[in-house]
Amino acid sequence: MQIAQDDLRRMLRLMHTIRSFELTAQTLFREGLAVGQFLGALHSYEGEEAVAVGVCAHLRDDDCVFSSHRGHGHSIAKGADVRAMMAELLGRESGISRGRGGSMHMFAPEIGLMGGNGIVGGGTPLALGPAFAAQYRGTDQVSVCFFGDGAASQGVFHECLNLASLWKLPVIYVCENNLWAATTPICDGWPVADLAPRAESFGMAGVAVDGNDLLAVYEAAGEAVGRAREGVGPTLIEAKTYRHRPHCMVIPEHRPEDELADWHARDPIARLEGHLLREGAISDVELADLVTEVEAELQAAADFARESASPDAATFADYLWA
């Protein structure tokens, strides 16, 4: 599959933006802790950047994404403003959900970002909705649901595959199989090693990809989005990947050191950079500039968040009713 070099550079930049966002978010979280403020759970997407970026590269603003508790990467890849996202982490009025949602509930419906979810598997049936709406209206939008291997053990997930395939809905289920459901290894959660084959039992397309290989994710997602737009039906993509951090900020690392080292060696950003350098699509200098620019952008976002005002406490009842 041929991908324009501009597109690859753009995707690399997004991956760096996600990585830098997470590192900056952890700094803000620790700043909060230092003054006795616990800013909720924070689930890092570091290590999984190729999945969100490779999938969302095929989406338009009128396509919907339903994210998970580990959703910063999906939000950035869908085009969310990192300043508003950072302000949300601090609960500011300028936050992407006006400080009412926090890390797990970032919404920007104008670009199709339909929110993260604090319930593991909670987004899986919601994602059927915009897919149904597109079919109902005869338009060609698609709906994408990102979820983890933990969510794949929920009953509702299987109901969704059944209904999506039965009605040939334009929905793409993207499992980020990072091998750990919080602190439980996948061998204690699944009696089998792979998720993708479950698609076959529902009569739908299922494909497993190396989730740390942007090119592989991009290609698989392109086929899935194409099938959905053409009305052929849904796809289940199992992206095998790994998170660099523990489940969240307050859970210590418990995974085997050799496993961590093995996956760090397969870092998706380093792999894409290696590819681009070998192809001559980017130079060392351009790469260094890109990283410097992204880091400056995230520092500015953090400053914006710190300087933004918190919501007026008297407004706690706002936005309940339409």
Partner: peptide
């Protein structure tokens, strides 16, 4: 609706 700050 509430979690989205009134956007949804």
């Amino acid at each position: 609706r509430y979690m989205s700050g009134g956007q949804v």
